[in-house]
Design a binder for these strands. Structure first.
Length: 330
DNA sequence: TTTATTTGACCAAA
DNA sequence: TTTGGTCAAATAAA
């Protein structure tokens, strides 16, 4: 169903490069404003670097291992696939999973769950054996409305309390509108015409799924340092190389590399986020899929087929990867 | 009011 | 069995 994975690599690469280009443009803009803070500029530079690194990493990995069956079994597909009646159905262990560590550097309040562009809702907290701090469990706010099964866990590091290890699970399938800081955002929530004819699971074209935040707008200097560490694919079976969850997300270690080798990227990001969400669409409850996990259903999810990772900013960057000058709706 | 968080209980995986 | 992950009632916030 929501195989949003597709051929992602190429598209990811393109997106990555496009993002880098856009960031560079923004940097250019900033350079013309002496008032802009250094932090902001540096942040941009960092992002640009990260962007390039990601792109390179993608190239490397794809060239070296391209032969394989890179279209990793969209985990989620498989998830539903083998849901035989065995009472063992409904196991969610196979969701794609990746981890990143985020260090809160400057005075930004260290509220753990920093905003990563999606709206999350906490649904649990648990003390973990051996860990000093409890682990927080979050799920996508639009879970019920849009069947978005993405979840994340936030674990504060023992040694370095400024570091939060965030483990994401599942991709966002929701159409989530980020709240722009620009209050004047009349653009009605145009139903992002998710064209994806779910049928050809490999083609999807992830338009521009970047959710490049407009944090550039706000001069939030040194935000946090994000250290993305390769995913720790708990189950090696799925290695979704997936979602480039850009902005804050660093880069993923190239598939097939042990976590040990995963590169880590540092870059600062502003924590401002688009907080709340104005969800452009709702209704369509899909709890069924979740609750009963009846053998057959569980597919659908209206908005699901789109992108690997939410396109949170669709409204803001309608044509981000193009030459859209329009960034900053008047 | 509605929506989000807290927190103990429950359940499945290990 | 123990532990981690989720649920859901109670509570808090908006």
């Amino acid at each position: 169903m929501e195989n949003c994975n597709m051929h992602g690599e190429k598209m990811s690469l393109i997106n990555e490069l496009a993002q880098g280009r856009e960031l560079a443009r923004q940097l250019q803009i900033y350079l013309n404003f002496p008032s802009s803070s250094h932090g902001t500029r540096e942040s941009l530079v960092q992002k640009i670097i990260v962007s390039y690194e990601k792109a390179l990493s993608m190239l490397n990995s794809s060239s070296s291992a391209s032969g394989g069956e890179q279209q990793l079994p969209t985990d989620s597909d498989r998830e539903f696939k083998d849901q035989d009646n065995k009472d063992s159905s409904r196991k969610r262990k196979t969701l794609p999973r990746w981890t990143q560590q985020i260090r809160v550097t400057s005075g930004i309040g260290l509220e753990g769950p920093l905003d990563d562009g999606f709206s999350w809702r906490k649904y649990g907290q648990k003390d973990i054996l051996g860990a000093k701090y409890p682990r927080g469990y979050y799920r996508c706010t639009h879970r019920n409305a849009q069947c978005c099964l993405a979840t994340k866990q936030v674990q504060r590091s023992d040694e370095d309390p400024t570091v939060f290890e965030i483990t994401y699970r599942g991709r966002h399938t929701c159409t989530q509108a980020s709240t722009s800081t620009t209050s004047a955002a009349p653009p009605p929530p145009p139903p992002p015409p998710p064209p994806p004819p779910q049928n050809s699971m490999d083609i999807v074209d992830p338009q521009q799924n970047q959710q490049q935040p407009q944090d550039l707008l706000l001069a939030i200097p040194q935000g946090l340092t994000v250290v993305t560490e390769g995913l720790d694919a708990g189950d090696q079976e799925l290695f979704p190389y997936n979602p480039l969850n850009h902005n804050y997300a660093g880069h993923f270690s190239p598939p097939f590399m042990g976590p040990a080798t995963s590169g880590t990227q540092y870059f600062s990001a502003s924590e401002q986020g688009f907080g709340g969400g104005s969800q452009s669409f709702q209704g369509a409850e899909c709890e069924i899929a979740e609750i009963l996990s009846s053998p057959t259903s569980a597919t659908n999810s209206p908005a699901a087929l789109g992108f690997p990772f939410g396109q949170a900013d669709q409204n803001l960057y309608p044509n981000f990867s193009f030459d859209g000058p329009g960034f900053f709706s008047s």
